[in-house]
């Protein structure tokens, strides 16, 4: 039985701090060896999980969803009405999905100030900056300053909406489709969509047209 007590855990953290090996790589190695010896981790399953999140589950999946929303109005309507149901078209399970749309008047940006909540099944492993103090502290106070640091300027008359993921709802930003891509097919459009544009730390994808075309 686990005792779910805050102070007990705080004291264990102190003890661990002075007893575990000094380098993170050594700490993780010791943990894996121990759990394998205890019979509660199989290293081949660890390998398999790493492969899934290195090769298969990443921002490409989110980009495919965005590209479909750009070209297929009925899919887009379903995506905004019930994102969790709509992304099943792609074989993706994402409970409590909330899709938010950038327009000429609105820019959306996603953060988790309390930990690192992220739509992993659609965007893969979050970038480290998303999980560390600088982004988490500033996103809800100075979003335009944060965007500037990412090289993004948002005009004063555009509303910036910051979504702080404090529950199990997961947010996906649909960026604006840039002009000049009217005759592009879905696959080509998907290549235009970046990870940061789906977090909301990138806005104008027009600059990528030349690179992708």
């Amino acid at each position: 039985m686990t005792k779910h007590d805050s102070n007990t855990i705080a004291n264990i953290h102190k003890e661990l701090h002075s007893h575990l090996p000094p380098e993170p790589a050594l700490r993780v190695k010791a943990l894996e060896s121990l759990l394998v010896e205890k019979g509660i981790v199989d290293s081949e399953a660890v390998d398999a999980w790493i492969e899934v999140y290195t090769e298969e589950i990443g921002p490409k999946r989110g980009a495919e969803i965005v590209a479909r929303a750009w070209i297929d109005p009925s899919f887009k309507a379903r995506l905004f009405d019930n994102g969790t149901e709509a992304v099943k078209d792609f074989g993706i399970e994402q409970e409590h999905l909330q899709v938010v749309e950038n327009t000429a008047d609105v820019h959306n940006m996603v953060v988790c100030t309390l930990c690192s909540c992220y739509p992993t099944s659609m965007l893969g492993i979050p970038p480290t900056w998303y999980k560390m103090a600088a982004y988490r502290s500033r996103a809800v106070r100075d979003p335009r300053g944060v965007l500037e640091e990412f090289g993004v300027e948002v005009a004063d008359d555009v509303e910036v909406r910051v979504w702080d993921s404090t529950a199990e709802l997961r947010y996906l930003v649909v960026p604006q489709r840039p002009a000049g891509t009217e005759d592009w097919d879905e696959q080509k459009l998907a290549r235009l969509v970046t990870r940061n544009s789906m977090i909301g730390t990138e806005r104008d994808l027009a600059a990528r047209i030349e690179e992708v075309a």
Partner: peptide, 19 residues
């Protein structure tokens, strides 16, 4: 951490890879 100050710049040039 929401709204706390003094953490400096964001590592915007972090390579885009899972790990």
């Amino acid at each position: 951490l929401g709204g706390r100050q003094g953490f400096g710049a964001i590592d915007v040039d972090e390579p885009e890879e899972a790990f």
